[in-house]
């Protein structure tokens, strides 16, 4: 049933970097399930031509299988279809940085190396660089999205989302729960005249809370093929 919804993601642990867009999150999850995101279900017996393509920045979007059937309505703006879901809305309660350490433990490795490999190793730069990398953390109790779409299907896709943001593998952005509330008004793209998500650039002075920028307004947001002049909320 297509209705207007407010989705609240309650977070358990600090979020690294920033929360994702809802359509990006759903597309990531759907791609995982269709086997398009990763080389998980590879079968060596298959000829290489049947193996799923791993999408990188250098692979044109036109060459890969499309994954655009999300349970969200679409709105066509300036000839581009954008999903009817708002950008993440959140309040940063506290911002700080933590550090991630990585080092090649030469003391433990020395005798595991073959004799010809036991030599001076540069650890100040290069592939074996010791790192103490700062991670920008934000304490955000909840992230809210408005969307128009099918709640049941969105919920199904979110069922296996345990964490959001970056560095999910080391405990950042773990999700406590998802809450859906039906809302009367559609705040997915515009709330009255206030812009709620990135859209292709249109010269409309009546739009409020928007600034002109350059980037993507549909997933995958990181892919250069999707870059264009946009209006983004500010």
């Amino acid at each position: 049933m297509l209705k207007n919804w407010r989705l609240t993601i309650n977070l358990l642990t600090p979020l690294a970097v920033k929360p994702p867009a809802l359509d990006a999150l759903l597309m990531w999850e759907l791609s995982n399930r269709l086997g398009l995101n990763r080389s998980d279900e590879l079968n060596l017996k298959q000829p290489e031509s049947f193996m799923p393509e791993k999408l990188t920045r250098s692979v044109p979007l036109s060459q890969v299988k499309k994954c655009e059937h999300l349970p969200l309505c679409k709105k066509t703006i300036a000839g581009v279809d954008v999903f009817r879901c708002s950008d993440p809305i959140y309040r940063i309660e506290h911002e700080y940085h933590e550090r991630q350490a990585k080092r090649f433990e030469c003391d433990k490795m020395a005798l595991m190396l073959r004799e010809s490999e036991r030599k001076s190793l540069l650890v100040a730069s290069g592939p074996y660089k010791m790192r103490f990398v700062p991670i920008r953390c934000m304490l955000i109790p909840k992230v809210v999205y408005f969307f128009r779409g099918d709640k049941v299907e969105v919920n199904k896709l979110l069922k296996k989302v345990f964490a959001i943001g970056k560095h999910r593998n080391i405990g950042y952005g773990f999700v406590r729960c998802f809450e859906f509330d039906e809302v009367e008004e559609d705040y997915s793209v515009f709330a009255s005249k206030v812009l709620m998500r990135s859209i292709p650039f249109i010269d409309d002075p009546t739009i409020e809370g928007a600034r002109r920028s350059y980037g993507a307004c549909k997933p995958p947001y990181w892919h250069p093929d999707n870059y264009m002049e946009i209006l983004e909320p500010c």
Binding site: K102, R103, F104, E105, K108, M109, L113, E117, P127, Y128
Partner: peptide
Amino acid sequence: GKMNIDQLNYLFN
């Protein structure tokens, strides 16, 4: 005692 640095770097790091 038989590995190179890249192999160890992959396994441990």
